[in-house]
Amino acid sequence: MQVVLNSVSQRYGKTLAIDGLSLTLKSGVTALLGPNGAGKTTLLRTLATIMPPQYGSLHIGGAEVVDERGARRIRDRIGYLPQAFGFDPQMSVADFVTYAAWLRGVPSSRWRGAVDEALEMVDLVDRRRDKMRKLSGGMRQRAGIAWAVVGRPGVVLLDEPTVGLDPRQRLQFRKIISGLADAVVVLSTHLIDDVAAIADRVVVMHGGVARFDGSVVELEATARDDLPGHTPLERAYMHLLPEAEQAV
Rank of each mutant, 00 (worst) to 15 (best):
W102G: 14
L165W: 03
V163E: 03
D123M: 12
V149G: 01
E68H: 08
R133Q: 07
E117F: 01
D126S: 14
Q172N: 11
P89T: 04
D88Y: 07
L124P: 15
V97C: 15
K175T: 10
F87D: 03
Q169H: 02
R75W: 00
K134Q: 02
P161R: 03
L165R: 06
P82L: 07
R73V: 11
A146R: 03
W102C: 15
W147A: 04
R127S: 10
G138M: 11
R129H: 08
D130S: 11
L165M: 08
S92I: 15
L165E: 04
D126A: 13
A101R: 15
Q90E: 13
R140E: 06
D159N: 04
A114P: 14
R152A: 10
I145T: 01
G86N: 05
Q172L: 15
A100N: 05
R128D: 00
R110P: 10
M132D: 06
D88P: 12
R152M: 07
M139E: 07
Y99C: 15
D116S: 10
P107T: 06
D159I: 11
M121F: 00
Y80K: 12
F96C: 14
W102F: 12
R128P: 14
G151K: 05
G113W: 01
T98A: 13
S109R: 15
R75M: 07
L81H: 03
R75Q: 05
V125M: 14
D88H: 05
G79A: 10
K131M: 11
P89N: 06
